[in-house]
């Protein structure tokens, strides 16, 4: 079993953090993982993406030609990565910000308004966690509880119970959106 995720969006949308949480949860689940970021020197407003590979065997390349899962948080990300997704894979489209759906019909497409869901929970910055919750449900590789505990680990240095709580709600909301 090998799954590869590309999480892509504007800098500031939290795709790097979402990827880190996914990778941490994968390791906690006993899988081999790699997390490879790709972003420019600028952060907020630039484009950012990261690739997470989960496997039950040692991972060769952390650079992936054809990811099995794409999380597209904005249109440029969908435009850039849609054609690369492996046949039979999954694309999550952030329909709050992306007006079109996927052109591919040989894979699973999830149109989820992750920003709107996050806003309804009171924190638009939690859109990344909504998206992560959705792909966790759709792929079924990692239990949601491990994602939640990895998220707590990642955010613990911020010492912010409120932040953890809203992210937990966002993961649940994303999980239940499909």
């Amino acid at each position: 079993m090998e799954q590869s995720f590309v999480l892509a969006g504007f800098g500031g949308q939290g795709v790097i953090l979402a990827g880190k949480i996914l990778a941490q949860a994968g390791a906690d689940h006993g899988l081999q993982v790699t997390w490879l970021p790709s972003y420019g020197p600028e952060m907020r407003g630039g484009t950012a993406n990261c690739t997470v590979v989960l496997s039950d065997e040692p991972i060769g390349s952390p650079v992936v030609d054809n990811p099995t899962v794409l999380v597209a948080m904005n249109l440029p990300s969908l435009d850039r990565f849609e054609k690369t997704v492996a046949k039979g894979g999954t694309i999550l489209i952030n329909s709050s910000l992306i007006a079109r759906t996927a052109e591919r019909n040989d894979l699973q497409v999830l149109n989820v308004p992750v920003n709107d869901i996050a806003v309804s929970l009171g924190n638009s910055h939690a859109a990344n966690m909504v998206a992560l919750g959705t792909v966790i449900k759709a792929t079924g590789t990692i239990p949601l509880e491990l994602i939640k505990s990895a998220m707590v680990k990642m955010l613990s240095h911020k010492d912010n119970a409120e932040l953890v709580a809203v992210n937990q709600q966002a993961l649940d909301a994303g999980y239940n959106a499909v």
Partner: peptide, 9 residues
């Protein structure tokens, strides 16, 4: 730079 930026257990 790839080894410098990536993470794995």
């Amino acid at each position: 730079g790839m080894l410098g930026q990536m993470m794995e257990p």
